[in-house]
């Protein structure tokens, strides 16, 4: 891993665009330093899966992510929070290089997976190791079995037989808590499932290839409360298996499922820390404003 190099201080946002609820002078330099220390390598004894270092992403000339530094650690759930349009999705999609599908997107800085630059890995290789669940459930128009087996089939040099796939598919569906519901109907079309089931199917599909990191972009925003609850439980259970980065605009959800929370605002990382610390003792003024209303 990299030796700790001096990190750039978190840049302040344009004061004219900052919320004026609290005097910006209270957003003390101390907060920025504390956060820089928290995201620095070696600040935790858990293994670091991914490291985002001084990452900036722009669509054309319009910046979406600015100078973000963040660790993604094994056994932990990292929750990305922030108001809509602050660059959460962009940051998440850059972790498995899906931002490259947008022609105008340009990134600077570095992202590593187990110490390797992700831009030097084959895209296919990277994406099977860093898997993703989207905001809208997007099961393929195939059977449930084929959906879950998709990633395994695409990764094998030779097409594996159905019987070889069956235990892997079952394991993934069990991990996603869907086996009890669909175990008997694996050949049913996936598009007939309910929204919540579809999203869990997408989670199973993403888990089937045994990724090292699982990215989730507001996985519950299209779902009803009951399904949301099931998926939150699921995330809590999965954290031992895979490092999870979840984007959410729902603070309670971040509080329920997150171990660490990163708060983004206008593309910048404003706050980073453990759940307790960010929600109970936020260091930056803007975090206080944002999370303040939640538990009042």
């Amino acid at each position: 891993m990299n030796s700790p190099t001096p990190l750039p201080p978190i840049k302040r946002i344009d004061p004219s665009r900052a919320p004026k609820v609290v005097d910006p002078r209270h957003d003390t330099l101390g907060a920025a330093d504390a956060i820089a220390a928290a995201v620095a390598p070696g600040s935790s004894n858990r293994v670091e899966r991914m490291r985002i270092d001084d990452l900036s992403i722009a669509y054309g000339t319009k910046p979406a992510v600015r100078n973000v530094t963040l660790p993604v650690r094994e056994g932990e759930v990292l929750a990305l929070i922030g108001p809509s349009g602050c660059g959460k999705t962009t940051l998440l999609r850059s972790l498995n290089r899906l931002t490259e599908l947008t022609d105008t997107a340009v990134a600077t800085g570095s992202i590593t997976l187990n110490g390797d630059d992700i831009h030097a890995l084959e895209a296919t290789d990277l994406r099977r190791r860093v898997s993703m669940v989207f905001q809208q459930p997007n099961p393929f128009p195939m059977s449930i079995f084929d959906n879950v087996a998709y990633a395994i089939r695409e990764q094998a040099a030779r097409r594996p037989s159905k019987s070889a796939l069956a235990p892997l598919v079952r394991e993934a569906l069990e991990d996603a808590g869907l086996w009890d519901e669909v175990g008997d109907n694996l050949d049913h079309p996936a598009l007939r499932l309910s929204g919540g089931q579809q999203q869990r199917l997408c989670i199973a599909r993403a888990l089937a290839s045994k990724p090292e990191v699982l990215l989730m972009d507001e996985p519950c925003s299209a779902l009803d409360p009951k399904s949301t609850e099931i998926i939150e439980e699921l995330i809590t259970r999965l954290r031992e298996k895979v490092a999870i980065v979840i984007v959410t605009h729902n603070l309670q959800q971040a509080h329920r499922v997150g171990d660490n929370v990163a708060f983004m605002y206008l593309g910048e990382l404003v706050e980073y820390g453990t759940v307790e610390q960010v929600f109970n003792a936020p260091r930056a003024e803007r975090t206080q404003n944002y999370v303040g209303g939640v538990f009042g």
């Binding site: 498995n96 990277l126 994406r127 898997s131 989207f134 997007n138 393929f140 990633a151 695409e154 993403a206």
Partner: peptide, 21 residues
């Protein structure tokens, strides 16, 4: 739908397999 294409890419399928499958 673009979601299917992105979904398949995100699972590590190469660009031809995404189109084909």
């Amino acid at each position: 739908p673009n979601g299917w294409k992105e979904g398949a890419l995100a699972l590590g399928a190469n660009r031809w397999r995404v189109m084909w499958t």
